[in-house]
Design a protein around this nucleic acid. Sequence first.
DNA 1: TTGTAGGCGTTATCAA
DNA 2: TTGATAACGCCTACAA
Lengths: 298, 298
Amino acid sequence: VSYVLNDAPGRPISESTRQLVLRTAHELGHVPHASARSLRLGRSNIVLALVRDFTLGFISNTVMHRLDIALAERGYLVLTHRFDESVRSVRELFGLVSPTMVVAMGGLSVPDESEFRIGGTKFLRVHGIVSHERVGELQAEHLASQGHRLIGYALPSSPSLALIAEERLLGLRRACERLGLPQPVVTTVDTSAPETVFAALRAYEELDEPVTALATHNDEIAILFCSALNALGQRAGRDLAVIGVDNIPAARIDLTTVEIDAEAWGKAVVDVVVAMLEDREPEPIGTDFLRLVVRETA
Amino acid sequence: VSYVLNDAPGRPISESTRQLVLRTAHELGHVPHASARSLRLGRSNIVLALVRDFTLGFISNTVMHRLDIALAERGYLVLTHRFDESVRSVRELFGLVSPTMVVAMGGLSVPDESEFRIGGTKFLRVHGIVSHERVGELQAEHLASQGHRLIGYALPSSPSLALIAEERLLGLRRACERLGLPQPVVTTVDTSAPETVFAALRAYEELDEPVTALATHNDEIAILFCSALNALGQRAGRDLAVIGVDNIPAARIDLTTVEIDAEAWGKAVVDVVVAMLEDREPEPIGTDFLRLVVRETA
DNA sequence: TTGTAGGCGTTATCAA
DNA sequence: TTGATAACGCCTACAA
Protein backbone atom coordinates (compact mmCIF):
# COMPACT_ATOMS: atom_id res chain seq x y z
CA VAL A 1 0.00 0.00 0.00
CA SER A 2 2.76 2.39 0.93
CA TYR A 3 4.64 1.71 -2.30
CA VAL A 4 1.56 2.45 -4.36
CA LEU A 5 0.45 5.57 -2.53
CA ASN A 6 3.94 7.05 -2.59
CA ASP A 7 4.72 6.00 -6.15
CA ALA A 8 7.85 4.31 -4.85
CA PRO A 9 10.21 4.12 -7.81
CA GLY A 10 11.65 0.77 -8.82
CA ARG A 11 9.18 -1.25 -6.81
CA PRO A 12 7.47 -4.06 -8.69
CA ILE A 13 3.73 -3.80 -8.14
CA SER A 14 1.27 -5.54 -10.43
CA GLU A 15 -1.14 -3.20 -12.13
CA SER A 16 -4.18 -4.99 -10.66
CA THR A 17 -2.89 -4.61 -7.10
CA ARG A 18 -2.02 -1.01 -7.75
CA GLN A 19 -5.53 -0.27 -8.92
CA LEU A 20 -7.05 -2.13 -6.02
CA VAL A 21 -5.03 -0.09 -3.56
CA LEU A 22 -5.88 3.20 -5.21
CA ARG A 23 -9.54 2.37 -5.50
CA THR A 24 -9.86 1.17 -1.92
CA ALA A 25 -7.99 4.18 -0.58
CA HIS A 26 -10.36 6.40 -2.46
CA GLU A 27 -13.44 4.53 -1.33
CA LEU A 28 -12.35 4.76 2.28
CA GLY A 29 -11.49 8.42 1.90
CA HIS A 30 -8.02 7.70 3.12
CA VAL A 31 -5.77 10.68 3.80
CA PRO A 32 -2.18 9.99 4.85
CA HIS A 33 -1.52 11.14 8.38
CA ALA A 34 1.16 13.82 8.44
CA SER A 35 2.31 13.24 12.00
CA ALA A 36 2.73 9.50 11.57
CA ARG A 37 4.66 10.02 8.38
CA SER A 38 6.85 12.61 9.98
CA LEU A 39 7.51 10.38 12.99
CA ARG A 40 8.55 7.45 10.90
CA LEU A 41 10.63 9.44 8.44
CA GLY A 42 12.32 11.50 11.09
CA ARG A 43 11.55 14.70 9.21
CA SER A 44 8.39 16.65 8.66
CA ASN A 45 9.08 18.52 5.41
CA ILE A 46 7.77 21.57 7.20
CA VAL A 47 9.77 24.77 6.80
CA LEU A 48 8.83 27.14 9.57
CA ALA A 49 9.21 30.82 8.72
CA LEU A 50 9.40 32.93 11.84
CA VAL A 51 8.25 36.53 11.57
CA ARG A 52 8.14 39.21 14.15
CA ASP A 53 4.87 40.55 12.90
CA PHE A 54 2.47 39.71 10.09
CA THR A 55 2.75 43.25 8.82
CA LEU A 56 5.37 41.85 6.56
CA GLY A 57 5.68 44.74 4.24
CA PHE A 58 6.14 44.58 0.53
CA ILE A 59 9.67 43.23 0.52
CA SER A 60 9.38 40.36 2.99
CA ASN A 61 6.09 39.47 1.41
CA THR A 62 7.73 38.99 -1.95
CA VAL A 63 10.48 36.91 -0.39
CA MET A 64 7.97 34.71 1.42
CA HIS A 65 5.98 34.25 -1.74
CA ARG A 66 8.96 33.04 -3.73
CA LEU A 67 10.02 30.74 -0.94
CA ASP A 68 6.56 29.26 -0.76
CA ILE A 69 6.37 28.46 -4.47
CA ALA A 70 9.90 27.13 -4.76
CA LEU A 71 9.60 24.84 -1.75
CA ALA A 72 6.15 23.57 -2.70
CA GLU A 73 7.70 22.28 -5.91
CA ARG A 74 10.17 20.30 -3.85
CA GLY A 75 7.59 18.79 -1.53
CA TYR A 76 8.05 21.11 1.42
CA LEU A 77 5.39 23.07 3.22
CA VAL A 78 6.10 26.62 4.30
CA LEU A 79 4.27 27.61 7.47
CA THR A 80 4.61 31.05 8.98
CA HIS A 81 4.57 31.69 12.68
CA ARG A 82 4.55 34.99 14.52
CA PHE A 83 7.33 34.26 16.96
CA ASP A 84 7.44 36.21 20.16
CA GLU A 85 9.73 34.94 22.89
CA SER A 86 7.51 36.51 25.52
CA VAL A 87 4.55 34.40 24.42
CA ARG A 88 6.28 31.06 24.04
CA SER A 89 9.80 29.69 24.33
CA VAL A 90 11.62 27.88 21.58
CA ARG A 91 11.25 24.62 23.48
CA GLU A 92 7.52 25.02 23.73
CA LEU A 93 7.40 25.78 20.04
CA PHE A 94 9.21 22.55 19.23
CA GLY A 95 6.80 20.63 21.42
CA LEU A 96 4.04 21.69 19.06
CA VAL A 97 5.72 21.45 15.68
CA SER A 98 8.82 19.65 14.43
CA PRO A 99 10.06 21.59 11.44
CA THR A 100 12.76 20.32 9.12
CA MET A 101 14.10 23.83 8.88
CA VAL A 102 13.52 27.17 10.55
CA VAL A 103 13.91 30.41 8.64
CA ALA A 104 14.01 33.55 10.77
CA MET A 105 12.77 36.36 8.59
CA GLY A 106 14.37 39.79 8.63
CA GLY A 107 13.73 41.97 11.61
CA LEU A 108 13.43 39.08 14.00
CA SER A 109 15.99 39.13 16.75
CA VAL A 110 16.48 35.57 17.79
CA PRO A 111 17.68 34.80 21.32
CA ASP A 112 20.08 32.03 20.47
CA GLU A 113 20.47 30.26 17.17
CA SER A 114 21.56 27.00 18.73
CA GLU A 115 18.19 26.69 20.44
CA PHE A 116 16.63 26.09 17.05
CA ARG A 117 19.00 23.36 16.00
CA ILE A 118 17.17 20.78 18.07
CA GLY A 119 17.38 17.31 16.60
CA GLY A 120 19.11 18.32 13.40
CA THR A 121 16.68 21.08 12.54
CA LYS A 122 18.32 23.42 10.06
CA PHE A 123 18.35 27.11 10.72
CA LEU A 124 18.77 30.22 8.60
CA ARG A 125 18.64 33.82 9.65
CA VAL A 126 17.57 35.99 6.73
CA HIS A 127 18.50 39.18 8.46
CA GLY A 128 21.93 40.30 7.35
CA ILE A 129 21.66 39.32 3.71
CA VAL A 130 20.72 42.86 2.77
CA SER A 131 23.02 45.50 4.25
CA HIS A 132 20.73 47.95 5.96
CA GLU A 133 23.64 50.20 6.81
CA ARG A 134 24.18 50.63 3.09
CA VAL A 135 20.53 51.69 2.80
CA GLY A 136 21.09 54.59 5.19
CA GLU A 137 24.30 55.47 3.39
CA LEU A 138 22.54 55.69 0.05
CA GLN A 139 19.94 58.01 1.52
CA ALA A 140 22.59 60.32 2.98
CA GLU A 141 24.69 60.29 -0.16
CA HIS A 142 21.79 61.28 -2.36
CA LEU A 143 20.61 64.06 -0.07
CA ALA A 144 24.17 65.40 0.23
CA SER A 145 24.53 65.37 -3.55
CA GLN A 146 21.43 67.56 -3.74
CA GLY A 147 23.11 70.13 -1.52
CA HIS A 148 21.40 69.31 1.75
CA ARG A 149 23.33 69.63 5.01
CA LEU A 150 21.16 69.00 8.03
CA ILE A 151 19.10 65.84 7.61
CA GLY A 152 16.09 64.83 9.69
CA TYR A 153 15.58 61.13 10.31
CA ALA A 154 12.22 59.53 11.01
CA LEU A 155 12.63 56.41 13.14
CA PRO A 156 9.59 54.14 13.54
CA SER A 157 8.37 53.46 17.06
CA SER A 158 7.26 49.92 16.25
CA PRO A 159 9.43 47.40 18.11
CA SER A 160 9.14 44.94 15.25
CA LEU A 161 11.15 47.32 13.08
CA ALA A 162 13.73 48.29 15.70
CA LEU A 163 16.46 45.89 14.66
CA ILE A 164 16.51 47.00 11.03
CA ALA A 165 15.84 50.64 11.89
CA GLU A 166 18.95 50.91 14.05
CA GLU A 167 21.14 49.58 11.27
CA ARG A 168 19.76 51.97 8.68
CA LEU A 169 20.23 54.89 11.00
CA LEU A 170 23.77 53.81 11.82
CA GLY A 171 24.63 53.74 8.11
CA LEU A 172 23.17 57.20 7.68
CA ARG A 173 25.11 58.53 10.67
CA ARG A 174 28.38 57.17 9.36
CA ALA A 175 27.76 58.57 5.89
CA CYS A 176 27.01 62.00 7.36
CA GLU A 177 30.27 61.88 9.27
CA ARG A 178 32.22 60.81 6.21
CA LEU A 179 30.61 63.49 4.03
CA GLY A 180 31.27 66.22 6.56
CA LEU A 181 27.59 66.76 7.34
CA PRO A 182 26.27 67.40 10.84
CA GLN A 183 24.69 64.43 12.60
CA PRO A 184 21.04 63.89 11.66
CA VAL A 185 18.15 65.11 13.79
CA VAL A 186 16.41 61.89 14.81
CA THR A 187 12.70 61.84 15.63
CA THR A 188 10.61 58.83 16.53
CA VAL A 189 7.35 58.53 14.67
CA ASP A 190 4.35 56.37 15.45
CA THR A 191 2.61 55.49 12.20
CA SER A 192 -0.67 55.04 14.01
CA ALA A 193 -0.50 58.47 15.64
CA PRO A 194 -0.39 61.14 12.93
CA GLU A 195 0.26 63.88 15.47
CA THR A 196 3.78 62.52 15.91
CA VAL A 197 4.40 63.32 12.26
CA PHE A 198 3.26 66.91 12.65
CA ALA A 199 5.27 67.18 15.86
CA ALA A 200 8.38 66.06 14.00
CA LEU A 201 7.81 68.69 11.32
CA ARG A 202 7.38 71.40 13.95
CA ALA A 203 10.53 70.27 15.75
CA TYR A 204 12.51 70.59 12.52
CA GLU A 205 11.30 74.14 12.01
CA GLU A 206 12.27 75.27 15.46
CA LEU A 207 15.94 74.44 15.03
CA ASP A 208 18.54 77.15 14.49
CA GLU A 209 19.87 75.50 11.36
CA PRO A 210 16.90 74.37 9.26
CA VAL A 211 16.36 70.73 8.39
CA THR A 212 15.99 70.79 4.61
CA ALA A 213 15.78 67.08 3.97
CA LEU A 214 14.15 64.10 5.61
CA ALA A 215 15.18 60.47 5.38
CA THR A 216 12.64 57.97 6.66
CA HIS A 217 12.89 54.36 7.73
CA ASN A 218 10.62 53.27 4.92
CA ASP A 219 8.24 54.46 2.21
CA GLU A 220 5.14 54.16 4.35
CA ILE A 221 6.50 56.73 6.78
CA ALA A 222 7.74 58.91 3.93
CA ILE A 223 4.25 58.97 2.45
CA LEU A 224 2.83 59.97 5.82
CA PHE A 225 5.16 62.96 5.87
CA CYS A 226 4.22 63.89 2.31
CA SER A 227 0.54 63.86 3.31
CA ALA A 228 1.27 65.97 6.38
CA LEU A 229 3.19 68.50 4.30
CA ASN A 230 0.26 68.71 1.93
CA ALA A 231 -2.08 69.27 4.83
CA LEU A 232 0.11 72.20 5.89
CA GLY A 233 -0.02 73.66 2.41
CA GLN A 234 3.56 72.64 1.78
CA ARG A 235 4.96 70.17 -0.65
CA ALA A 236 7.52 67.38 -0.47
CA GLY A 237 10.42 68.08 -2.79
CA ARG A 238 9.86 71.81 -2.68
CA ASP A 239 9.62 72.73 1.00
CA LEU A 240 11.26 69.62 2.38
CA ALA A 241 13.11 66.88 0.54
CA VAL A 242 11.82 63.42 1.44
CA ILE A 243 13.46 60.07 0.73
CA GLY A 244 12.11 56.68 1.73
CA VAL A 245 13.13 53.02 1.46
CA ASP A 246 11.59 49.99 -0.30
CA ASN A 247 9.94 51.35 -3.44
CA ILE A 248 6.56 50.01 -2.42
CA PRO A 249 3.81 50.35 -5.02
CA ALA A 250 2.32 53.40 -3.33
CA ALA A 251 5.69 55.15 -3.62
CA ARG A 252 5.93 54.78 -7.35
CA ILE A 253 4.12 57.94 -8.22
CA ASP A 254 6.53 60.54 -6.94
CA LEU A 255 8.56 59.33 -3.99
CA THR A 256 12.33 59.28 -4.16
CA THR A 257 13.47 56.11 -2.45
CA VAL A 258 16.07 53.41 -2.02
CA GLU A 259 14.73 50.38 -3.78
CA ILE A 260 15.34 46.93 -2.34
CA ASP A 261 15.18 44.44 -5.17
CA ALA A 262 12.70 42.03 -3.64
CA GLU A 263 12.79 39.59 -6.54
CA ALA A 264 16.56 39.22 -6.51
CA TRP A 265 16.63 38.99 -2.77
CA GLY A 266 13.87 36.40 -2.76
CA LYS A 267 15.76 34.31 -5.27
CA ALA A 268 18.89 34.51 -3.16
CA VAL A 269 17.03 33.34 -0.06
CA VAL A 270 15.41 30.49 -1.97
CA ASP A 271 18.80 29.33 -3.25
CA VAL A 272 20.27 29.19 0.23
CA VAL A 273 17.26 27.45 1.77
CA VAL A 274 17.09 24.82 -0.95
CA ALA A 275 20.82 24.16 -0.70
CA MET A 276 20.56 23.67 3.05
CA LEU A 277 17.56 21.37 2.72
CA GLU A 278 19.46 19.27 0.21
CA ASP A 279 22.56 19.24 2.39
CA ARG A 280 24.56 21.10 -0.19
CA GLU A 281 26.90 23.96 0.52
CA PRO A 282 24.99 27.13 -0.45
CA GLU A 283 26.47 29.29 -3.18
CA PRO A 284 27.78 32.60 -1.92
CA ILE A 285 25.04 35.11 -2.58
CA GLY A 286 25.28 38.56 -4.05
CA THR A 287 24.91 41.55 -1.79
CA ASP A 288 23.81 44.16 -4.25
CA PHE A 289 20.06 44.40 -3.88
CA LEU A 290 19.91 48.18 -3.53
CA ARG A 291 19.26 50.91 -6.07
CA LEU A 292 18.51 54.59 -5.74
CA VAL A 293 15.25 55.67 -7.41
CA VAL A 294 15.07 59.43 -7.89
CA ARG A 295 11.60 60.92 -8.33
CA GLU A 296 10.00 64.20 -7.34
CA THR A 297 10.34 64.34 -3.58
CA ALA A 298 14.11 64.59 -3.23
CA VAL B 1 8.47 10.29 32.63
CA SER B 2 5.46 11.39 30.70
CA TYR B 3 3.54 12.25 33.86
CA VAL B 4 6.39 14.40 35.11
CA LEU B 5 7.10 16.20 31.88
CA ASN B 6 3.45 16.97 31.30
CA ASP B 7 2.68 17.85 34.91
CA ALA B 8 -0.14 15.33 34.78
CA PRO B 9 -2.56 16.38 37.49
CA GLY B 10 -3.54 13.88 40.15
CA ARG B 11 -0.74 11.47 39.40
CA PRO B 12 1.22 10.27 42.37
CA ILE B 13 4.93 10.80 41.68
CA SER B 14 7.50 10.91 44.44
CA GLU B 15 9.47 14.08 44.59
CA SER B 16 12.77 12.25 44.17
CA THR B 17 11.63 10.54 40.98
CA ARG B 18 10.23 13.78 39.70
CA GLN B 19 13.56 15.52 40.18
CA LEU B 20 15.45 12.65 38.62
CA VAL B 21 13.29 12.79 35.52
CA LEU B 22 13.59 16.53 35.17
CA ARG B 23 17.33 16.49 35.74
CA THR B 24 17.96 13.67 33.31
CA ALA B 25 15.75 15.21 30.64
CA HIS B 26 17.69 18.41 31.00
CA GLU B 27 21.06 16.68 30.90
CA LEU B 28 20.12 14.82 27.75
CA GLY B 29 18.72 17.95 26.19
CA HIS B 30 15.46 16.19 25.66
CA VAL B 31 12.82 17.98 23.61
CA PRO B 32 9.42 16.32 23.25
CA HIS B 33 8.73 15.30 19.69
CA ALA B 34 5.69 17.08 18.32
CA SER B 35 4.83 14.51 15.66
CA ALA B 36 4.96 11.58 18.05
CA ARG B 37 2.84 13.42 20.53
CA SER B 38 0.34 14.36 17.88
CA LEU B 39 0.20 10.80 16.56
CA ARG B 40 -0.47 9.34 19.94
CA LEU B 41 -2.99 11.95 21.05
CA GLY B 42 -4.80 12.03 17.76
CA ARG B 43 -4.63 15.80 17.63
CA SER B 44 -1.85 18.25 16.91
CA ASN B 45 -2.95 21.40 18.70
CA ILE B 46 -2.03 23.20 15.51
CA VAL B 47 -4.49 25.78 14.20
CA LEU B 48 -3.79 26.42 10.56
CA ALA B 49 -4.74 29.89 9.34
CA LEU B 50 -5.09 29.96 5.59
CA VAL B 51 -4.48 33.24 3.85
CA ARG B 52 -4.66 34.09 0.22
CA ASP B 53 -1.66 36.37 0.41
CA PHE B 54 0.65 37.62 3.12
CA THR B 55 -0.25 41.17 2.21
CA LEU B 56 -2.68 40.81 5.03
CA GLY B 57 -3.46 44.42 5.51
CA PHE B 58 -4.01 46.18 8.74
CA ILE B 59 -7.29 44.54 9.64
CA SER B 60 -6.50 40.88 9.08
CA ASN B 61 -3.18 41.46 10.73
CA THR B 62 -4.87 42.62 13.91
CA VAL B 63 -7.23 39.67 13.82
CA MET B 64 -4.37 37.22 13.36
CA HIS B 65 -2.47 38.81 16.19
CA ARG B 66 -5.31 38.45 18.65
CA LEU B 67 -5.92 34.87 17.58
CA ASP B 68 -2.28 34.05 18.06
CA ILE B 69 -2.13 35.41 21.61
CA ALA B 70 -5.46 33.93 22.71
CA LEU B 71 -4.69 30.45 21.38
CA ALA B 72 -1.14 30.40 22.73
CA GLU B 73 -2.61 30.82 26.20
CA ARG B 74 -4.68 27.72 25.61
CA GLY B 75 -1.81 25.60 24.35
CA TYR B 76 -2.49 25.88 20.64
CA LEU B 77 -0.06 26.94 17.96
CA VAL B 78 -1.23 29.21 15.17
CA LEU B 79 0.55 28.60 11.89
CA THR B 80 -0.20 30.61 8.80
CA HIS B 81 -0.10 29.18 5.32
CA ARG B 82 -0.47 30.94 2.02
CA PHE B 83 -3.02 28.63 0.45
CA ASP B 84 -3.28 28.52 -3.28
CA GLU B 85 -5.26 25.67 -4.79
CA SER B 86 -3.18 25.89 -7.96
CA VAL B 87 0.01 25.15 -6.03
CA ARG B 88 -1.23 22.34 -3.83
CA SER B 89 -4.49 20.51 -3.20
CA VAL B 90 -6.13 20.21 0.18
CA ARG B 91 -5.21 16.54 0.28
CA GLU B 92 -1.57 17.28 -0.30
CA LEU B 93 -1.72 19.90 2.40
CA PHE B 94 -3.07 17.38 4.89
CA GLY B 95 -0.33 14.96 3.96
CA LEU B 96 2.15 17.51 5.28
CA VAL B 97 0.37 18.86 8.32
CA SER B 98 -2.50 17.57 10.48
CA PRO B 99 -4.11 20.62 12.02
CA THR B 100 -6.69 20.40 14.76
CA MET B 101 -8.53 23.26 13.14
CA VAL B 102 -8.38 25.23 9.92
CA VAL B 103 -9.33 28.90 9.82
CA ALA B 104 -9.79 30.37 6.34
CA MET B 105 -9.07 34.05 6.63
CA GLY B 106 -11.12 36.66 4.84
CA GLY B 107 -10.66 36.99 1.12
CA LEU B 108 -9.89 33.33 0.66
CA SER B 109 -12.30 31.54 -1.57
CA VAL B 110 -12.24 27.94 -0.53
CA PRO B 111 -13.14 25.25 -3.06
CA ASP B 112 -15.14 23.04 -0.78
CA GLU B 113 -15.40 23.27 2.96
CA SER B 114 -15.95 19.56 3.45
CA GLU B 115 -12.51 18.89 2.03
CA PHE B 116 -11.02 20.42 5.14
CA ARG B 117 -12.99 18.35 7.60
CA ILE B 118 -10.73 15.35 7.15
CA GLY B 119 -10.49 13.23 10.26
CA GLY B 120 -12.48 15.51 12.49
CA THR B 121 -10.53 18.64 11.63
CA LYS B 122 -12.60 21.67 12.55
CA PHE B 123 -13.13 24.40 10.02
CA LEU B 124 -14.10 28.06 10.18
CA ARG B 125 -14.45 30.53 7.38
CA VAL B 126 -13.82 34.05 8.62
CA HIS B 127 -15.12 35.64 5.48
CA GLY B 128 -18.69 36.72 5.96
CA ILE B 129 -18.44 37.88 9.57
CA VAL B 130 -18.04 41.46 8.40
CA SER B 131 -20.60 42.57 5.86
CA HIS B 132 -18.62 43.99 3.01
CA GLU B 133 -21.77 45.01 1.22
CA ARG B 134 -22.51 47.29 4.13
CA VAL B 135 -19.06 48.83 3.66
CA GLY B 136 -19.91 49.89 0.12
CA GLU B 137 -23.28 51.14 1.29
CA LEU B 138 -21.72 53.37 3.91
CA GLN B 139 -19.41 54.87 1.31
CA ALA B 140 -22.28 55.63 -1.04
CA GLU B 141 -24.50 57.01 1.70
CA HIS B 142 -21.84 59.43 2.90
CA LEU B 143 -20.98 60.66 -0.58
CA ALA B 144 -24.67 61.12 -1.40
CA SER B 145 -25.16 63.09 1.81
CA GLN B 146 -22.41 65.44 0.65
CA GLY B 147 -24.37 66.13 -2.52
CA HIS B 148 -22.42 63.94 -4.91
CA ARG B 149 -24.22 62.18 -7.73
CA LEU B 150 -21.89 60.32 -10.03
CA ILE B 151 -19.42 58.22 -8.07
CA GLY B 152 -16.24 56.68 -9.40
CA TYR B 153 -15.19 53.33 -7.94
CA ALA B 154 -11.60 52.11 -7.82
CA LEU B 155 -11.49 48.32 -7.93
CA PRO B 156 -8.15 46.63 -7.17
CA SER B 157 -6.70 44.35 -9.82
CA SER B 158 -5.14 42.02 -7.26
CA PRO B 159 -6.86 38.60 -7.39
CA SER B 160 -6.35 38.14 -3.67
CA LEU B 161 -8.76 41.00 -3.05
CA ALA B 162 -11.32 40.05 -5.66
CA LEU B 163 -13.75 38.22 -3.39
CA ILE B 164 -14.10 41.08 -0.93
CA ALA B 165 -13.91 43.74 -3.62
CA GLU B 166 -16.92 42.36 -5.46
CA GLU B 167 -19.02 42.45 -2.31
CA ARG B 168 -18.12 46.01 -1.47
CA LEU B 169 -18.88 47.13 -4.98
CA LEU B 170 -22.20 45.30 -4.94
CA GLY B 171 -23.19 47.11 -1.75
CA LEU B 172 -22.24 50.43 -3.30
CA ARG B 173 -24.23 49.67 -6.46
CA ARG B 174 -27.33 48.76 -4.50
CA ALA B 175 -27.06 51.87 -2.36
CA CYS B 176 -26.74 54.06 -5.45
CA GLU B 177 -29.86 52.48 -6.85
CA ARG B 178 -31.74 52.96 -3.62
CA LEU B 179 -30.62 56.57 -3.31
CA GLY B 180 -31.56 57.40 -6.87
CA LEU B 181 -27.97 57.94 -7.98
CA PRO B 182 -26.62 56.76 -11.33
CA GLN B 183 -24.57 53.56 -11.28
CA PRO B 184 -20.90 54.13 -10.36
CA VAL B 185 -18.13 54.39 -12.92
CA VAL B 186 -15.92 51.43 -12.12
CA THR B 187 -12.22 51.46 -12.95
CA THR B 188 -9.68 48.79 -12.16
CA VAL B 189 -6.49 50.00 -10.58
CA ASP B 190 -3.20 48.21 -10.20
CA THR B 191 -1.49 49.46 -7.05
CA SER B 192 1.89 48.57 -8.46
CA ALA B 193 1.32 50.51 -11.69
CA PRO B 194 0.71 54.18 -10.83
CA GLU B 195 -0.21 55.02 -14.41
CA THR B 196 -3.46 53.15 -13.92
CA VAL B 197 -4.35 55.69 -11.24
CA PHE B 198 -3.72 58.61 -13.55
CA ALA B 199 -5.61 56.83 -16.32
CA ALA B 200 -8.60 56.45 -14.01
CA LEU B 201 -8.53 60.16 -13.21
CA ARG B 202 -8.37 61.04 -16.90
CA ALA B 203 -11.24 58.72 -17.67
CA TYR B 204 -13.40 60.43 -15.04
CA GLU B 205 -12.70 63.83 -16.57
CA GLU B 206 -13.68 62.75 -20.05
CA LEU B 207 -17.21 61.78 -19.07
CA ASP B 208 -20.20 63.95 -19.96
CA GLU B 209 -21.40 64.09 -16.42
CA PRO B 210 -18.40 64.72 -14.15
CA VAL B 211 -17.38 62.25 -11.46
CA THR B 212 -17.17 64.38 -8.34
CA ALA B 213 -16.46 61.67 -5.80
CA LEU B 214 -14.38 58.54 -5.65
CA ALA B 215 -14.90 55.51 -3.46
CA THR B 216 -11.99 53.09 -3.30
CA HIS B 217 -11.68 49.48 -2.25
CA ASN B 218 -9.39 50.41 0.62
CA ASP B 219 -7.31 53.18 2.15
CA GLU B 220 -4.12 52.24 0.38
CA ILE B 221 -5.72 52.86 -2.99
CA ALA B 222 -7.37 56.04 -1.72
CA ILE B 223 -3.99 57.38 -0.66
CA LEU B 224 -2.59 56.59 -4.08
CA PHE B 225 -5.31 58.72 -5.64
CA CYS B 226 -4.64 61.54 -3.20
CA SER B 227 -0.97 61.51 -4.19
CA ALA B 228 -1.86 61.49 -7.86
CA LEU B 229 -4.20 64.45 -7.40
CA ASN B 230 -1.43 66.32 -5.64
CA ALA B 231 0.92 65.56 -8.49
CA LEU B 232 -1.62 67.11 -10.88
CA GLY B 233 -1.82 70.22 -8.73
CA GLN B 234 -5.26 69.20 -7.49
CA ARG B 235 -6.39 68.25 -4.07
CA ALA B 236 -8.52 65.47 -2.60
CA GLY B 237 -11.58 66.89 -0.91
CA ARG B 238 -11.53 70.02 -3.02
CA ASP B 239 -11.27 68.83 -6.62
CA LEU B 240 -12.42 65.28 -6.03
CA ALA B 241 -13.93 63.74 -2.92
CA VAL B 242 -12.14 60.54 -1.88
CA ILE B 243 -13.31 57.92 0.60
CA GLY B 244 -11.45 54.73 1.52
CA VAL B 245 -11.98 51.71 3.76
CA ASP B 246 -10.11 50.36 6.81
CA ASN B 247 -8.80 53.42 8.64
CA ILE B 248 -5.21 52.23 8.37
CA PRO B 249 -2.64 54.30 10.27
CA ALA B 250 -1.52 56.13 7.13
CA ALA B 251 -5.10 57.25 6.57
CA ARG B 252 -5.45 58.92 9.92
CA ILE B 253 -4.16 62.28 8.87
CA ASP B 254 -6.84 63.41 6.50
CA LEU B 255 -8.56 60.54 4.74
CA THR B 256 -12.29 60.04 5.08
CA THR B 257 -12.90 56.35 5.39
CA VAL B 258 -15.09 53.49 6.60
CA GLU B 259 -13.41 52.09 9.65
CA ILE B 260 -13.50 48.37 10.33
CA ASP B 261 -13.11 47.83 14.05
CA ALA B 262 -10.28 45.34 13.94
CA GLU B 263 -10.13 44.84 17.70
CA ALA B 264 -13.80 43.99 18.01
CA TRP B 265 -13.69 41.77 14.98
CA GLY B 266 -10.60 40.00 16.27
CA LYS B 267 -12.28 39.35 19.56
CA ALA B 268 -15.32 37.93 17.80
CA VAL B 269 -13.19 35.57 15.74
CA VAL B 270 -11.26 34.44 18.80
CA ASP B 271 -14.49 33.66 20.64
CA VAL B 272 -15.77 31.48 17.84
CA VAL B 273 -12.49 29.63 17.34
CA VAL B 274 -12.06 28.93 21.04
CA ALA B 275 -15.64 27.71 21.33
CA MET B 276 -15.15 25.34 18.41
CA LEU B 277 -11.87 24.02 19.81
CA GLU B 278 -13.54 23.35 23.12
CA ASP B 279 -16.51 21.70 21.42
CA ARG B 280 -18.88 24.33 22.69
CA GLU B 281 -21.56 26.01 20.67
CA PRO B 282 -20.18 29.45 19.72
CA GLU B 283 -22.08 32.50 20.93
CA PRO B 284 -23.77 34.40 18.12
CA ILE B 285 -21.45 37.25 17.24
CA GLY B 286 -22.25 40.89 16.63
CA THR B 287 -22.20 42.21 13.12
CA ASP B 288 -21.58 45.88 13.73
CA PHE B 289 -17.90 46.41 13.18
CA LEU B 290 -18.24 49.42 10.85
CA ARG B 291 -18.06 53.14 11.49
CA LEU B 292 -17.80 56.13 9.20
CA VAL B 293 -14.80 58.38 9.89
CA VAL B 294 -15.15 61.78 8.27
CA ARG B 295 -11.97 63.77 7.67
CA GLU B 296 -10.79 66.20 5.00
CA THR B 297 -11.00 64.22 1.78
CA ALA B 298 -14.76 63.69 1.53
C1' DT C 1 5.35 -9.82 -6.81
C1' DT C 2 3.32 -10.02 -2.12
C1' DG C 3 3.33 -10.61 3.05
C1' DT C 4 5.20 -9.71 7.70
C1' DA C 5 7.16 -7.41 11.40
C1' DG C 6 9.57 -3.83 13.81
C1' DG C 7 10.06 0.70 15.34
C1' DC C 8 9.87 6.06 15.11
C1' DG C 9 8.37 8.92 20.45
C1' DT C 10 4.57 9.39 22.89
C1' DT C 11 0.75 8.41 26.32
C1' DA C 12 -2.83 5.49 28.65
C1' DT C 13 -3.88 1.30 30.71
C1' DC C 14 -3.02 -2.26 33.67
C1' DA C 15 -0.31 -4.97 36.78
C1' DA C 16 2.88 -5.04 40.47
C1' DT D 1 4.16 4.80 43.79
C1' DT D 2 6.49 2.52 39.91
C1' DG D 3 7.14 -0.57 35.83
C1' DA D 4 5.73 -2.85 31.66
C1' DT D 5 3.22 -2.80 27.50
C1' DA D 6 0.31 -1.72 23.66
C1' DA D 7 -1.01 1.37 20.24
C1' DC D 8 -1.36 5.77 17.30
C1' DG D 9 -0.18 5.42 11.28
C1' DC D 10 3.46 5.03 8.59
C1' DC D 11 7.57 3.09 6.03
C1' DT D 12 11.08 -0.32 4.95
C1' DA D 13 13.97 -4.34 5.37
C1' DC D 14 13.49 -8.88 4.76
C1' DA D 15 11.32 -13.28 3.96
C1' DA D 16 8.38 -15.89 1.18
